[in-house]
């Protein structure tokens, strides 16, 4: 699993693919106060990206990947 769902935190790691989008949407729907951690993430598929953009959850940690961080910051901040 590229996204590990904890109580109120979704931890993204490696490559988040297109199949993760639906579950992410559901989780964010159920956990309106859920936070996200991108630290170990290298890429997020556009489908998940648009889910994140629609919700804009608080970000606990930005990705180490610089390019991804730049994009995520403009998309989610």
């Amino acid at each position: 699993m590229a996204i590990e769902y904890k109580k109120s935190l979704a931890v993204f790691s490696d490559f988040v693919g297109v199949e993760d989008a639906e579950a992410l949407l559901e989780w964010l729907g159920k956990n309106p106060k859920g936070k996200v951690n991108f630290e170990e993430c290298t890429h997020i598929h556009a489908s998940s990206l648009q889910v994140l953009m629609a919700v804009k959850p608080p970000v606990v940690a930005w990705p180490k990947d610089e390019n991804l961080q730049l994009w995520l910051k403009v998309a989610l901040e």
Binding site: V18, A21, E22, L25, L28, G29, S47, S48, L49, Q50, V51, M53, A54, V55, W71, V74, A75
Partner: peptide, 16 residues
């Protein structure tokens, strides 16, 4: 990045 989300609620959003 711009999101042109037409759905009014989160649940209606078409992620695909």
């Amino acid at each position: 990045v711009i999101l042109n989300n037409s759905a009014s609620t989160l649940a209606e959003m078409d992620v695909f």
